[in-house]
Nucleic acid binder design. Structure first.
Lengths: 330, 330
DNA sequence: AAATTTAGCGCAAACGATTGCGAAAATGTT
DNA sequence: AACATTTTCGCAATCGTTTGCGCTAAATTT
């Protein structure tokens, strides 16, 4: 069965291609009579305009790209899931490109976005991407870029990210209000900006409230390290009464240790985390956490993207304020 | 800065468009001299062929679609992650379409794939999709479809899925070899084919080995239900000595209950699950599980897809045999 | 030197949809 | 009835790339 094209329809109806095209688009030049005839046949034959032809003509497609280090991460997962919904509702498609936290692959992906003349690109950069000139080149092709989550420090670009200061502050305040005195605070890789930001705000909050709490700051690179560390600290004489986990990764290791030692939250030890929100529900009582969900972030990133596609050249840095989700672990 | 096109290059070099095109493609009709000139200019100006024009001409794009109920699922996540890698290596792109387990959305997504004349579509159907005629229509447009994971029962289509019989059998054998006698076996929604398949094979295995174990079969629809159920059974007089969890969802609820009761695996109670593999590492000791990873499945699905794209009309149902991953929970 | 081959390149159509412009037909106006 | 206007539609170009065919001039053969 041959494809149904305007040409096809035109021949069948003894009309010109242009008339058929206009009829389908309700162009005022076309009589009602012909419109009806054309539309009927189009419906019967299930005519669908050829996307490729339209893309060629308009020189842009209704596709967005998203470049991320890896899908296998709760945060990106919720971000993508949420973004895909929005994108679909607006008649766009979403193309996923993983960089595997590799700069070369990241660049290749970027090139793909350029080649495919995508309507726009969402990017969360790899942890060692510093030169973003290649990203900015897309602007020449009028392909807007929205950076999210892991954003470059360069100023003149659109960014949407979690307010790390605020999230860490909320966590610190929660610990202070619960009157915790011996707090183990576990952070991630100190090279990452996310870590330094959170750490800074965390410590500043304790100072601000003139807290007399003994706050032990530690950093880890993996769930396993957190697991070992928590076991070590919970076996110390002067018992830790609360643990702060900067990420889901750390939270998982922390909870493993707590369980191995046969302890329970919140009585034996309090736990609070900054989390995407899924992992905290895996425990009972559910973990109290500061939410840094990808859902909201995706909505914001998308609305910013729409503005850019519509022609906004205005550059913005948006931050999402997290909220404290009360579980029973603190 | 204007786009660099063949026309542009041709004018600059005082050549015809066709010559430029052929020069770039190393056509034998073109002299070496011109080839060099053309290629040099193309390189300098960073010429990139217009994908839209090529798509229009060839009437197909290098894009695959993937339609799934939801991304927020470890299995799909690993599947997509793995698939995206393959797809990218072969110069294709992957477009994600979530159906939200909704048949209407699923159909819309399918239509999008047809409209965009994708090179092929990977589909995991919603739990209540029974009529797959719409999927088969894509064949008319020469768009191959590979069903994966949740596949229709209809025979004449390409399917790639986990061998549920084998996975459940492995789990049962593990329980038998550990000499467990009071086994709580928790399955998912009995309406889903995945549940009935696993249940059937599970029971059959106990029979086959003439096991005298007391196997309690239960079904749940959520993590919360599993949580309640396990608490109930573990409080009974005749103590359960092992729990089988058909899915990650159930495993999470089960472990919550075990922790609330202050029990430990494997001594107080053994646990074994069929799982994607991430969740089992969240506990200590790690949960012993039968792997149903999306990674391998994605590789298989992709190679099958390549064959179809290459013209294979041959229809196949492929199954992946799971393996037992030894943790310390049984 | 004439005839034939071959190397090197350009013309033009095609993919399918859109749109400015012009033309014919229908209607209205004097 | 002659002219002006409006309705209704078709021609042809365009987006960028590819490709069959034909053309010219040089190289080869006779």
């Amino acid at each position: 069965m041959a494809e149904v094209t305007l040409k096809n329809l035109a021949e069948m109806l003894n009309l010109s291609i242009s008339t058929v095209s206009r009829a389908l688009k309700n162009h005022p030049d076309i009589s009602n009579e012909t419109k009806v005839k054309v539309k009927e046949l189009a419906a019967v034959l299930d005519y669908e305009p050829n996307t490729y032809a339209i893309n060629l003509r308009t020189n842009h497609s209704r596709e967005f790209g998203i470049i991320i280090p890896s899908i296998s991460n709760d945060f990106y997962q919720s971000f993508i899931s949420s973004l895909e919904e929005e994108v679909r509702l607006y008649g766009y498609s979403l193309i996923i490109l993983q960089s595997g936290n590799n700069q070369v692959t990241e660049l290749e992906n970027l090139k793909r976005c350029k080649q495919n003349r995508m309507a726009g690109v969402f990017v969360s950069i790899t942890s060692n991407t510093s030169d973003i000139s290649n990203f900015l080149k897309l602007d020449e092709q009028h392909i807007p870029i929205i950076f999210f989550d892991k954003v470059p420090s360069f100023e003149a670009c659109n960014k949407v990210c979690v307010d790390d200061n605020y999230a860490a502050t909320l966590a610190a305040e929660a610990l202070i209000s619960k009157n915790k005195k011996h707090i183990l605070s576990i952070f991630g890789n100190p090279k990452m900006s996310i870590t330094t930001k959170r750490l800074k705000a965390f410590e500043a909050t304790f100072k601000k409230y003139n807290s007399d709490a003994n706050v032990v700051i530690q950093s880890t690179n993996s769930t396993e390290e957190a697991f070992q560390m928590v076991q070590y600290y919970l076996n110390e004489k002067e018992r830790i009464d609360a643990i702060f986990c900067m990420s889901d990764e750390i939270l998982i290791g922390t909870m493993k240790a707590i369980q191995v030692l046969g302890l329970k939250t919140p009585n034996d030890v309090g736990v609070i985390a900054i989390s995407e929100g899924i992992i905290p529900t895996f425990y009972h009582p559910q973990i109290t956490y500061i939410e840094t969900s990808g859902f909201k972030l995706a909505k914001m990133a998308f609305s910013r993207m729409l503005a850019c596609v519509a022609g906004s050249t205005y550059v913005q840095e948006l931050k999402i304020e997290s909220v404290l989700v009360q579980g029973g672990s603190l």
